[in-house]
């Protein structure tokens, strides 16, 4: 008699996950401004910043490149990472927004386990970010950023992993952040430091020449590994160390996020829930 039409077996899990992904995709398509902003941001870096710095910042031959490369080519993987970083943080903002608007609560009253619901939400955000990345790479191709065709395939699993890592970081932050306005805080304290203290814009050996301390910090930055994973995968190489670090960070961030959203142990119960 219970749950007359609901189906909570294996097929139900699958339908629940596809439903969450479907909604995320639908929302993204309907928020055109978000889509355009997500594309314009890295393109400005590619078209303007990279052009300006092309002559200033010489890049010697480093893996995975076989020859000297244009600065545009060098920063493209970093910009791909930037798209995913912004997307991960934006979906965390959406989680905070959702939670305050109550949409998060409708997700959390689903009978499926909470880790599964959060994981599905994470996967949905990652898929949206990968769609953005491919559109960006297509435009960059016309700008002389033309990795081997096979690279567009081999970068896919790397994008899944880096998307999950940055998304799970966002998920974790969403359980800690309380107010909508705090995206500015995320920009200043998460996005900018992560982006600039990484190998996205300059190889780390250059950083080492300037400041050994900053170099150490960069080497501890998970974003560096996401960028290197993407950079190598785009040229059909596997950077095992980067892959392992990204996988480890994803696992750690996700575990912490599930803990934070756990009904009995988590932060929601402790820090003063709703009024009324």
């Amino acid at each position: 008699m219970t749950g007359a039409v609901g189906q909570y077996g294996a097929a139900g899990y699958l339908r629940c996950m596809t439903g969450i992904i479907w909604r995320e995709g639908l929302r993204f398509l309907q928020q055109r401004g978000r889509f355009i902003a997500a594309l314009v941001r890295p393109l400005v870096w590619l078209f303007i910043f990279a052009a300006g710095f092309r002559s200033v910042l010489g890049v010697s031959i480093i893996e995975p490149y076989e020859t000297y490369v244009l600065y545009e080519v060098y920063i493209t993987p970093g910009l791909v990472g930037m798209i995913q970083l912004f997307n991960g943080m934006q979906s965390s903002l959406a989680m905070v927004y959702d939670r305050e608007m109550g949409t998060m609560r409708t997700l959390l009253v689903s009978p499926f386990p909470r880790w599964f619901l959060l994981g599905s939400k994470l996967l949905a955000g990652t898929i949206v970010s990968i769609a953005q990345v491919y559109v960006f790479l297509a435009i960059a191709w016309f700008w002389e950023v033309d990795p081997p065709l096979g690279g567009y395939l081999t970068v896919f699993p790397a994008l899944v992993l880096s998307g999950l890592m940055l998304g799970s970081l966002g998920l974790l932050l969403s359980s800690v952040i309380r107010q909508l306005e705090n995206f500015a805080g995320i920009m200043n304290f998460v996005i900018f430091p992560m982006f600039f203290m990484s190998s996205a814009l300059y190889p780390l050996w250059r950083m080492k020449e300037s400041s050994p301390l900053l170099y150490e910090l960069c080497s501890f930055n998970p974003f560096t590994y996401a960028v290197e994973l993407i950079r190598h995968a785009l040229y059909m190489q596997l950077n095992l160390q980067a892959a392992l670090v990204a996988a480890g960070c994803t696992f750690a961030f996700m575990a912490l996020a599930v803990f934070a959203y756990n009904p009995s142990k988590g932060l929601i119960a402790r820090r003063g829930g709703p009024g009324g």
């Binding site: 749950g3 039409v5 609901g6 189906q7 909570y8 077996g9 097929a11 139900g12 899990y13 339908r15 629940c16 596809t18 439903g19 969450i20 479907w22 909604r23 639908l26 929302r27 309907q30 928020q31 949409t103 409708t106 997700l107 689903s110 009978p111 499926f112 619901l117």
Partner: peptide, 20 residues
């Protein structure tokens, strides 16, 4: 979800209960 239609909101909820 104000951006989605009434039916889309309903079917999203149905998915959260595994309904075909």
């Amino acid at each position: 979800d104000p951006d989605l239609s009434v039916l889309q909101n309903m079917t999203y909820h149905a998915a959260l209960h595994g309904i075909p």
